[in-house]
Nucleic acid binder design. Structure first.
Length: 151
DNA sequence: GCCAACGTTGGC
DNA sequence: GCCAACGTTGGC
């Protein structure tokens, strides 16, 4: 069982959108993020992070409900995520499916994460980090759930 | 809207 | 294989 963090701009896709229906995490075009998705297991937990919002922060939890499979938007010339290097036979990009699990009573804001002991090593907080999918350690997971309180 | 940080691209 | 240029991300 591993833990992850999924980043999304709420104006584009929010936790409420995910609550309405599970979704595929298509459109990831970063090799590191893709490689993380390739290692995800059914039932893995994830935080849902709202970026480019005020304040940015973690708003709830999700669950991996399907392991990695080819991202079809890479093959669609009309998609903004189209990648002509990718083919049906040799897909480059992968995605997983995630489902809503819980919404925090209050957002755990980025500045609060930064101020919390035990989260100093968190990948999310690293300077210049731009990954849309990243791992979270079990310890970090526990600390943040505590910050969030009952959902 | 600004800009620092980063990944990717492409010329050489 | 180097590295400058570029596009994108995301906090502020």
């Amino acid at each position: 069982m591993a833990y992850w963090l999924f980043k999304s701009e709420p104006g584009v896709f929010s936790l409420s959108d995910l609550k309405a229906a599970p979704t595929d995490w298509s459109g990831v075009r970063n090799y590191q993020a893709r490689n993380f998705m390739l290692t995800m297991q059914l039932g893995d937990g994830g935080f849902f992070y709202h970026s480019n919002s005020n304040p940015p922060g973690i708003v709830g939890t999700v669950e991996v409900v399907r392991t990695a499979y080819p991202d079809p938007t890479a093959l669609d010339p009309k998609s903004p995520y189209y990648d002509p290097r990718s083919t049906l036979e040799k897909p480059i990009w992968q995605m997983v499916d995630i489902a809503f699990r819980s919404a925090f009573a209050e957002i755990v804001a980025l500045d609060r994460l930064r101020a919390t002991a035990g989260l100093e090593q968190m990948l999310l907080l690293r300077r210049g980090n731009r990954l849309s999918v990243m791992p979270v350690s079990a310890a970090e997971w526990r600390i943040i759930l505590n910050l969030a309180g009952p959902s």
